[in-house]
């Protein structure tokens, strides 16, 4: 009876500890070892406290008492990361990454939706600005609040980024680092990332944003006075062309956000970029075929207005030659993507 009672007490204590343990630890199944170690400690202590060397109900009770409360034990397991503004240093990069991606998506959505509205509903510029401002305000603030609360909670529970990865993927990563070392590739010992990065993420992101901005400018064509002077067919071709530019910008930015990992994804993005570039040649060809719609805007001092004088027919061939050079340039620029796909192959380990 007494033995059963002692075992019941110990089991109850262990059950309480288990409940209080952080979830990331329970997921690892390591908690079984932790509980076994605590149990061994309780019995050892109870044996020592007893005069006979055999645990008694009383010594078990004292031993459990001296273990500390399950809350305190669990709290020590949660005290894991390095504090940094309520979110631990370990979770900070992931937090920034999640916020960045979310913000970019929100910004993109808030820009694309008004653009669609402009095309189909013909809404005014004021309404567009208001819609973008409201959307951005609500979206950015809301997502910032939600993501921050989640990360603070995860930090308090002692989560690390690797706790979100499966055992298998962690093993694979370790294996990749080993293989990389064998092949002579320099890898950081901490996270397995190559020491010589194959892209500069910040540069790609900034470049992507610039390209998207140019694309959006060409798509929106926001200067009505200028648009009136230009052939609508040319404006339409520019608008189509801008879609390719925006797509390329997004692809560059995506590569920047992925950073120096997921080699396959980088290769796929390069393939998509090649397709986008080659497809965009069709727009250049269409323009090359219609030199008469290409605008040349000049300022007329006599009439104090801007005028579209277009290209004189005798220069059509020159125009076509220049257009052909541009097309060749676009085609040749794919070489860089092909080279990058080839270069990335070295990082596939």
């Amino acid at each position: 009876m007494s033995k059963n009672e002692m075992e019941r007490l110990v089991k109850e204590f262990l059950k309480d500890v288990k409940i209080k343990l952080p979830d990331w630890l329970k997921d690892k199944k390591e908690y079984k070892e932790i509980l076994a170690e605590l149990e061994d400690h309780v019995w050892s202590k109870a044996e020592e406290l007893s005069n006979t060397g055999q645990p008694t109900l009383e010594t078990v009770q004292v031993a459990i008492e001296q273990m500390g409360t399950p809350e305190n034990i669990a709290k020590e397991y949660k005290r894991r990361g390095t504090p940094k503004v309520y979110i631990t240093k370990e979770l900070w990069p992931l937090y920034i990454k999640v916020l960045t991606i979310l913000f970019l998506v929100i910004i993109a959505v808030n820009i694309i939706i008004p653009i669609i509205n402009v095309i189909f509903d013909n809404i005014s510029a004021d309404e567009i600005v208001e819609s973008i401002a409201t959307g951005l305000q609500a979206g950015l603030f809301g997502s910032f609040a939600v993501v921050t609360i989640i990360f603070v909670a995860l930090s308090m529970q002692g989560y690390f980024p690797e706790d979100f990865k499966s055992k298998k993927s962690l093993k694979d990563e370790a294996k990749q680092v080993e293989l990389a070392k064998e092949r002579g590739l320099a890898y950081q010992t901490k996270d397995g990332k190559p020491l010589k990065p194959f892209i500069k993420p910040v540069g790609e992101i900034i470049g992507g944003i610039v390209v998207i901005s140019i694309g959006l400018f060409l798509f929106i064509q926001p200067i009505p006075g200028l648009n009136e002077l230009i052939d609508p067919e040319f404006l339409l071709l520019v608008r189509f062309g801008s879609l390719f530019i925006i797509t390329e910008g997004f692809l560059d930015m995506t590569r920047g956000l992925i950073g120096n990992r997921q080699v396959s994804t980088h290769q796929i993005i390069h393939i998509i970029t090649i397709i986008v570039k080659l497809t965009s040649i069709s727009i250049a060809v269409l323009m090359m075929m219609r030199p008469e719609i290409f605008p040349i805007i000049i300022y007329s001092e006599s009439s104090d207005v801007f005028q579209n004088i277009g290209i004189k027919p005798e220069f059509y061939n020159t125009f076509r030659a220049i257009a052909a050079l541009v097309i060749t340039g676009i085609a040749l620029s794919t070489i860089e993507n092909f080279y990058n796909i080839y270069k990335l192959q070295k990082y596939r380990i």
Binding site: I34, L38, D40, H41, S44, K45, G68, I73, E76, Y77
Partner: peptide, 27 residues
């Protein structure tokens, strides 16, 4: 093992540095 570490720690520090026994294992 954990129990011995704790015992030695308590003895060698003249019971000045006492750790709640269960919290040794997270450390």
């Amino acid at each position: 093992h954990g129990y011995k570490i704790l015992k030695d720690l308590t003895n060698q520090t003249n019971e000045m540095l006492v750790i709640e026994e269960g919290t040794l294992y997270p450390i």
